[in-house]
Amino acid sequence: MTDQKPPSSRTVLSSMPVVVMAIVAVADVVAGPGVGFLPLVSLGPAFSGLVGGWRRTAVFGLVALVLCVGLGLYDGLFEERRGFTAMAAVAGVTAIGVAAAVMRSRREAELASVRSIAEVAQRVLLRPVPLTAGPLQAAVSYTSAVAEARIGGDLYEVVASPHGIRVIVGDVQGKGLAAVETAALVLGAFREAAHDEPDLVGLGERLERSVARELEGEKFVTAILAEIGTRQEAVFLNYGHPAPMVVRRDGAVDFPRPPAHALPLGLGVHGTEGPKPYRVDFAPGDQLLLYTDGVTEARDDEGRFYPVGERAHLLKDPHAHRALEALRADLAQHSDGPPHDDAAMLLLRYHGHEEGKSVPTG
């Protein structure tokens, strides 16, 4: 036995004009001319205008008009004004429905154009990370808090520079287009400086200067910079961002934290000491998960935060993208309703040169 799927709301609305006009016609014939059901025939083209195009609405309007004439003759309503009043009601509702359908079609076309532009902006702003970079495999996940949006205020990038693999994950204060603009600024500065600056501290200072020049008021960007070279270690520079999660080859989980708290990008005052770099062992078989607070601050229906450290076992899949997708699905299941903040996750796996680049990444 096959399961019957419930009809979609659009399918139900599409069938409503026929159903409504049939019910009105039957009710009018049964009740007779004294009840006054006839003007309700106009509900047919009214419902058609909700989901159909203007041509479909016009066709249903014509059908409703013919039905109105037939029922009016049957009831003898054209001997008085009621029949003509019902026809005028049907014609008026049909005209309004056609106009509404035309306007809706134009809005849908405009929305499709905006979405197309947004997808291009996404590819420019948040480019796909490389599947492999040196000894690393990479996978990324991004969930926007804005309905049907694909980008927001979170940012990430992986750059293979002459000085090692350099990574940034950040979170812009606020949401909407202003946050997207700031994210574009930070990513542009990072992509340029990642190739030029010989050390991570210099990269961070250059990024701080770029952000400070552009941001106004008390706007800021939390970010974590990472550099993975040839020494089987990761160097971090943390600007007020959640600590990364390191999953060791044996399954042990660690959240290495900076030696001292540092302000986010954009809040650094002249003369204030920036963050100190700190090093963490990162060897073949280890995994590094960088994320934004949209992950750790996601709450379930009882108000509990998402325990990302307890979910490290979900990253066991040999395909990096499938592993990260499993973590993302678990995060969505944990959350109570739609996300309240953007959530970005960047997974880096140290597979080592000796294991080659034949390892699939999904």
Rank of each mutant, 00 (worst) to 15 (best):
F47C: 08
R311F: 00
R166Q: 10
A252N: 04
E108M: 13
L348F: 09
G274V: 00
G352F: 02
P259I: 04
K219N: 12
E119K: 15
G202D: 02
H270I: 07
H340Q: 04
K276P: 00
D342T: 15
V269S: 08
R257W: 10
V146Q: 13
F84D: 03
P7E: 06
L203S: 01
H241D: 00
P198S: 14
A178M: 11
A252I: 04
A234Y: 12
P130F: 08
L187V: 05
P244G: 06
E157A: 15
A86Y: 08
L71T: 10
K357I: 03
V93F: 07
R257Q: 06
R304D: 12
A109G: 05
L43M: 10
A112W: 00
R304G: 07
V26H: 04
G337C: 02
A91H: 06
R115S: 05
R322T: 14
F78G: 08
P45W: 09
D250H: 11
G303Y: 14
A234H: 02
V51I: 10
A179M: 06
R322A: 12
T143D: 11
I165S: 00
L237D: 00
L43V: 02
V140L: 14
E181C: 04
F47E: 11
H163D: 04
G268R: 15
S105W: 08
P339R: 15
D196S: 13
D75M: 01
G92E: 07
L315K: 13
G240P: 01
D336L: 05
G294V: 07
E192C: 09
D28M: 03
A138S: 15
T272Q: 15
R106M: 02
V169A: 12
A184S: 15
F255P: 01
L111M: 12
P242T: 09
